[in-house]
Design a protein around this nucleic acid. Structure first.
Lengths: 265, 265
DNA sequence: CCGTTTATGATCATTGGTGATCGTTTATGA
DNA sequence: TCATAAACGATCACCAATGATCATAAACGG
């Protein structure tokens, strides 16, 4: 990865939250801590951001009210490192020019930073994802129409006849409430409906799920395991869960916090 | 391949992305790394680009496009006080609970501030309007689906079958490029299409146009004057323009910069 | 047709960025 | 106040990127 690329990712991440730590930026870029520190020092000299202990912050006082509601903000701070490494591995699957769908969620939101250096066609139902990519990247952004639900920051339409049906993508990326033998689990029936609609528009289905998601069960099954093409998770995945995915012929990618990632099956 | 040809390719690639690596340019041109380096050195001397380790970057600082594109930002500062008074008069037509449509534009954008205290159902095709209302108001926000055009900050869909067709509103608010005897004028055919679609979904049509718009003519007619229910403008409106609106049975509201506004016909 | 010039590609020594290690500094909690 | 852990800065080894040099081929002019 080139220096400028890292710089863009760092600036993107710094805009997103009040302070971005060195470790977070390592996960997002795949670079070492030493390099990130050097980058932060450089950007500090260029007045692009402010250097603080532990990481970096935006040069301008961050707006008081975040777009993300409280729920979103709280979730965002949980298991951040894993989510970032997973998100980076997800973006590594993409190349410039790809058409992809990104379903809203706190894990998939982390994809926006590595995506800052890409130029893809991105369809999403997430307002924050669209907003960030619009501001900090040159990707083409397409948005689904409908009502914006503040709780989840997602745009939902009760109607079947929206633009969603006109966008077809190579890959769709989504998070999950839980992953079990029955398949991909979700909690909210409204979300289920929207996500199923999106899934139908993509060829491959890539699920971003940190390892805790294999322990959680939820009430509603979104789709069976064999519909999933790839699962990206972190090192905490159990052998049992890995075997389950293997049996369903799902490609498993284990994102390493540091740099590379390991494809298992 | 000729030298000039490579130079064009290199400059094109550099404009396109923040940084183009030597290897990338080799693949694009078929030349060797040594040649590409020489080319970059030459172009660097000519100030056509900047030479950096790993490749080359555009000479101008990477235009980190704010959410508001330049066009938008520039327009936004023009005739602001008039626009604000007009926008406030427009919001005064609304009551809590109303369903309204707001077409994107710099004048209509000013409506977001008075709308902060309302609780309406608002359908819009403008990303900045949706963003602001989402962050700073409790209105219910509905968004049209489609591609986000950065220049205008508007969401457009080439398809007819989007959620727009499922939202019906009492009023639609829109700006205008110009207002003449032929009707409401617009410059961009793409916008025309989107706006006509929206107009069909509302009962009343309220046009926000500062008085300079009566002098400007544009190439495309969006709709005839008699389709317009109300025009809100500022004190600068000429008698001739007022008479024209009166003849078309359009209610004219003159927004006073200070507080109240004056209904003329 | 031949000699010269110019552009290109290959080789190799050098430079500069990256990552790892280790000692030092700073923050946090007991 | 002290103890501990995290963060930081400095140093060094490594490797890719670079620049210099030279050989070759194409373009040019006589």
């Amino acid at each position: 990865m080139h220096e400028k690329e890292r710089h863009r990712i760092i600036l993107s991440a710094v805009q997103d939250r009040p302070v971005a730590t060195v470790v977070e930026l390592c996960n997002l870029t795949g670079a070492s801590e030493a390099t990130i520190r050097r980058d932060i020092a450089t950007l500090h000299m260029q007045q692009k951001l402010r250097r603080v202990r532990g990481g970096a912050e935006a040069i301008n006082p961050p707006p008081f009210v975040g777009l993300a509601g409280r729920t979103f903000a709280v979730n965002e701070t949980m298991r951040t490192s894993e989510k970032q490494a997973i998100a980076r591995a997800a973006v590594d699957l993409c190349e410039d020019g790809d058409s992809i769908i990104i379903n809203g969620g706190t894990t998939t939101f982390q994809m926006v930073h590595p995506l800052a250096t890409r130029r893809c066609q991105i369809f999403t139902n997430s307002f924050p994802i669209a907003e960030h990519l619009l501001k900090h990247s040159k990707n083409t952004i397409m948005l689904s129409g409908g009502t914006i639900y503040r709780e989840q920051n997602i745009i939902l339409s009760p109607f079947d006849n929206d633009v969603t049906r006109n966008f077809y993508a190579k890959r769709m990326f989504m998070g999950a409430q839980g992953l079990g033998p029955l398949g991909l689990m979700e909690a909210d029936p409204l979300l289920i409906q929207a996500e199923q609609k999106l899934i139908g528009q993509a060829d491959e289905l890539v699920v971003l799920a940190d390892s805790s998601k294999f322990e959680r069960r939820s009430s509603l099954v979104l789709c069976p395991l064999n519909r999933i093409t790839t699962v990206i998770t972190d090192e905490g995945i159990s052998d049992k869960a890995a075997a389950m995915l293997d049996a369903a012929d799902v490609t498993l990618v284990v994102a390493q916090p540091g740099s590379g990632q390991e494809e298992v099956s």
